[in-house]
Simulated assay, not measured.
Amino acid sequence: MENVLDSPYTDLERPPLSQAALNRALVRPGGLWSSLTVTERTGSTNADLAQLARDGAREGAVLIAELQLAGRGRLGRAWTAPPRAGLTFSMLLRPAVPPARQGWVTLLVALAAASAVRRLAGVEVRLKWPNDLLVGELKLAGVLAERAEGAVVVGMGLNVSVRAEELPVPTATSLVLSEAECADRDPLLRAVLREVESHYRDWVAADGDADACGLRSAYLGMSATVGRDVRVELPGERVLRGVATGVDAAGHLVVRTGDGEQTLSVGDVVHVRPA
């Protein structure tokens, strides 16, 4: 396995993150973030944080990996990036909202990250339901939420300085390839976590009501899915074609077909693609 320190890029090109600096900037009394840990390498930040959740870790723990060796997205899909070329991290949340509304966690984190990247990097990021950040039709980042002992662990992989020859698939991109105004991981991570905290606080205060806190309207305003003809691949090689008309109060995608409207949860869907 490649060691982070053996990367062909220097610390000037791909500098390491400072755990001490991140904690000084983001951990404060009464704030959401309780601790930030930077590890040189791990298998999966989601798996590590899920174990900490089982051990009783506080809400707001964040684990960041400079290199993730067994990263994964939805349905076990692999997520890979060279050392220090992206932001790979997971957050431990314990949302005190009704279970039926907790499906919004994935969408909330995706929206927060897109808002932060738009503001700091000047890149027109859109949201593909349920968990991708897109630049045009190319994937910039993905979000994966998993339950663990009454908590929700939310992981994100965001391509920052990944070069074209380093992309895992031709349908991916990075901030550098998108000519971003900022490709410095430290301020990007701070901006994303601050945006997550802001949206999360409002959502929890509204008891998970995505309309009352403005979450649903903000999400729809950045959606690359709603309003488009879509081809939805379902388990068992079934396909649903129609128009994505919205996202309901539980965060489910609403698709209008010739037979009427159908509501799809994250677990119902293999892929959502433009028709």
Rank of each mutant, 00 (worst) to 15 (best):
G157E: 12
S161Q: 11
A141G: 09
G155W: 08
L144S: 10
E181K: 14
G157F: 04
A183K: 00
L188D: 01
D202I: 00
S161D: 08
E166C: 02
V152D: 00
M156D: 01
T171R: 09
G150S: 09
A180I: 01
E195D: 13
A145Y: 02
L158R: 03
V152N: 00
L177N: 05
R163W: 09
V204H: 11
A148N: 12
V160H: 07
L158K: 03
V169I: 03
L144K: 06
E195H: 00
L175I: 10
D202R: 15
E146P: 07
L167W: 09
R163I: 01
S174W: 11
P168Q: 06
T171C: 01
E146N: 05
G142C: 06
G157W: 10
L193M: 11
L175G: 07
A206P: 10
V169F: 10
G155N: 05
G157C: 08
L193A: 04
D202H: 13
Y200V: 06
E179C: 10
L140E: 09
M156S: 11
E146M: 05
A180W: 10
H199D: 03
K139H: 12
V160C: 09
E137Q: 15
R147Y: 04
R190M: 05
L140P: 11
G142W: 01
L193N: 00
K139V: 02
L177C: 07
A191T: 06
C182F: 03
A172Q: 08
A151Q: 06
L189F: 05
A148M: 08
P168G: 06
P187V: 00
A183Y: 03
P170I: 06
A141D: 09
E165Q: 14
D186T: 14
L138R: 15
R147T: 14
V176G: 07
R147H: 13
V162W: 02
P187F: 01
E197R: 06
L138I: 00
L175T: 11
R190Q: 15
L138D: 04
E146W: 00
A151I: 07
R163K: 09
V162C: 05
V204F: 10
T171H: 12
N159L: 10
P170K: 08
E179W: 02
R194E: 15
E166R: 02
L144N: 10
A206C: 13
V169M: 12
K139Q: 10
Y200R: 04
E146Q: 15
L188P: 07
V169A: 14
E165P: 01
V196D: 03
R194Y: 00
S174R: 11
E165F: 07
A180L: 06
R185D: 04
S178W: 08
R190C: 12
A206F: 12
D184F: 00
A191Q: 03
M156E: 07
A164R: 15
K139L: 07
E137R: 14
L158A: 02
D202Q: 13
T173L: 09
R163A: 15
L193E: 09
V154P: 09
E181Q: 14
R194N: 13
A172R: 06
G155M: 09
A206W: 10
G150N: 08
A205C: 02
E149D: 15
